[in-house]
Write a protein that binds this DNA or RNA. Sequence first.
DNA 1: AACACGGGGTC
DNA 2: GACCCAGTGTT
Length: 350
Amino acid sequence: MEGMPHSAEDLLARRTPFQEALAAWYRREARVLPWRTAPSLYKTVVSEFMLQQTQVKTVLPYFARWHQALPDFGALAAAPEAVVLKLWEGLGYYSRARNLRRLAQVLVALPEIPRTTAGWLALPGVGPYTAAAVTSIGFGLPAACVDGNVVRILARLTADHREFRDSATAAKAFAPLAQQLVPARGAGDHNQAMMELGATVCVRQNPLCDRCPVFRFCAAGRAGKPEAYPRLATRPIEKQTVVRIWCESKGALLLHRAQAGARRLAGQHELPTAEQAGLVPAAIAQGPLLARKKRAITRFQIVESIHRAAPPRRLPPDLIWAPLGELDQLVLSGPHRRWIGEILRRPARD
DNA sequence: AACACGGGGTC
DNA sequence: GACCCAGTGTT
């Protein structure tokens, strides 16, 4: 608790009424979500993996499709990785999908499912957040979830003026306070209530303080400037340009397939960059422009231009000819699936 | 501790 | 356009 503002002690001194006010609000306002109705450990795990760095609204259709195709740990463990990636296509952070599949394989092979937070922490794809979420929601263990929502709420409740270099540092700093606020009973609902409050009321911009069940505990709210917290340093955005080629021949499209062990987009297909095709970007960029697209990845802003190019004489490594009729069966990155579809739907491509 | 990872939401 | 989001794994 070193370095924590004095208001953290005030909050802890009133932790029971705080917990009760939050719990009453959650019983009243909790959103109806598919992993909350008829909950199971499997639904909890799948939803928590999908919710890593992804908002509820985005996850909803993916969760439904996933649960239909792979209804339990056994089905997931037995599914080919390509099937799993296909179901994840468009969600991003694809290592989550591979980790989730590996986790299912480990759980199925284990004599029994771990029942401690530390036991879950040791499993693939499970970090401090997910270990706390799964064991508090699934087993009622009193472990605190510290996600972006919880950091924001705690920073506001205590009007913590410290500047954190990034969200991971902030999460670490608030973990002790978060842990002390977890009730001995009902930890799962408490954690979900905190995150729900952050997602729906204590939002980053224009928080709805007049609807906040714990406003009377909030130092930043009293001071009238909740939006000033938390203070997170911002890193400069880097701009990049990428030149890609559109090579269509005999009803097939040239695609690049990231190798299984690749750091990003492992096993997925995208239009090849000029470099991947062994071509000079500046020369390709002279050719006919089919599309210019922007995408943002972490702190990079990337402008990608897609140019028609002649097929390479020899097929460079990792490049494949994908029959147009079979594109649906390949795993593409979300944006590339859209861009390719757009270009293919154009009336006259020639 | 710093960094990479993908995409969508929001103001 | 900038920043954020139910973070984790690697270096």
